[in-house]
């Protein structure tokens, strides 16, 4: 197989994943739901295990589990008299434990279990790509329809509630979109590192713009750059792709942060 053939599916997957994580990652960062998003992604491992156990496509199990855990965590953290981070920590671990138990109960060896945990973009299938396409469409359509609502509840839930916006329901919809994004990203960087793709591109983009729309567009673009660079680099060096992508992103974030910070200091110096 030639280089182009090997790289075709991974490149398409990287681009599709970037749309999901750029758009939803923006909300994750500005609404500060990073920790709950980490909880959702880890809890989805329960679904991977269930998929193995039932002998179905594990990603499908992950989708069900991540949606259920998103709704569960959303409702528990809002209504139960438990501190939010405690509730998330508990559900996070329960999801992982369920997954491990199902994998244990499944007779025989679980093939490519590691690829779900740490990603394996070089081996994405046509089925994976079709699924990512559908998930991207769901995300794009929902965000298009609920743009003004999501902006309102991200900025000020208290006012939103008082002005008659169904804040809790919208929050749950947003968490479901996070769940969907997590699933779209599992094949690329794996459950353990999904949170990095949800935060790094958006956090980098935020340094350069004060418009939510532009921040989304920029983080989609940055995410494309990170994943493609990581992909290329991992191919050249024969490193694990998921980890390489994250390290490329992390490095670029630190560099841009340093530059912005330096410029800010310089401006202060000049104004004095």
């Amino acid at each position: 197989m030639g280089f182009l053939e090997i790289m075709r599916n991974p490149v398409i997957a990287a681009l599709l994943a970037s749309v999901a994580c750029g758009v939803i990652g923006t909300y994750v960062v500005v609404k500060r739901i990073v920790f709950i998003s980490g909880g959702i992604s880890h809890a989805s491992f329960g679904g991977i295990g269930l998929g193995y156990f039932l002998g179905v496509y594990p990603i499908l199990g992950a989708l069900v589990f991540s949606l259920v855990s998103a709704l569960g965590m959303g409702v528990v953290t809002r209504r139960a008299k438990l501190p939010e981070d405690t509730a998330i920590g508990i559900l996070w671990a329960i999801g992982m434990a369920v997954g491990i138990l199902f994998v244990f109960l499944t007779p025989g060896y679980a093939p490519d279990l590691m690829s779900y945990l740490f990603g394996d973009i070089l081996f994405v299938s046509a089925l994976d790509i079709r699924m990512m396409l559908v998930l991207d469409a769901v995300i794009a359509l929902t965000v298009f329809l609920l743009y003004k609502e999501f902006l309102s509840i991200s900025f000020d839930e208290g006012f939103g509630e008082a002005s008659g916006i169904p804040v809790e329901r919208l929050y749950l919809v947003l968490l479901c979109l996070v769940a969907v994004t997590v699933v779209a990203l599992i094949r690329v960087v794996g459950i353990v590192m999904v949170i990095a793709l949800l935060t790094i591109p958006a956090a980098t983009a935020r340094q350069f713009t004060h418009s939510l729309r532009k921040m989304m567009a920029l983080s989609v673009f940055l995410s494309c750059v990170f994943t493609l660079c990581g992909l290329g680099l991992s191919y050249l060096l024969d490193w694990p792709t998921g980890a390489t992508i994250i390290l490329v992103g992390g490095l670029m974030f630190l560099v841009s942060w340093g530059i912005v910070d330096l410029r800010r200091k310089k401006r202060k110096y000049v104004s004095v």
Partner: peptide
């Protein structure tokens, strides 16, 4: 650092009235 302008925020006052979608 929230990415919204004054204009975005003032319009939010109409969000509940205008309705979902």
């Amino acid at each position: 650092e929230f990415p919204a302008s004054v204009w975005d925020v003032v319009l939010m006052g109409r969000c509940g009235y205008r309705g979902v979608f």
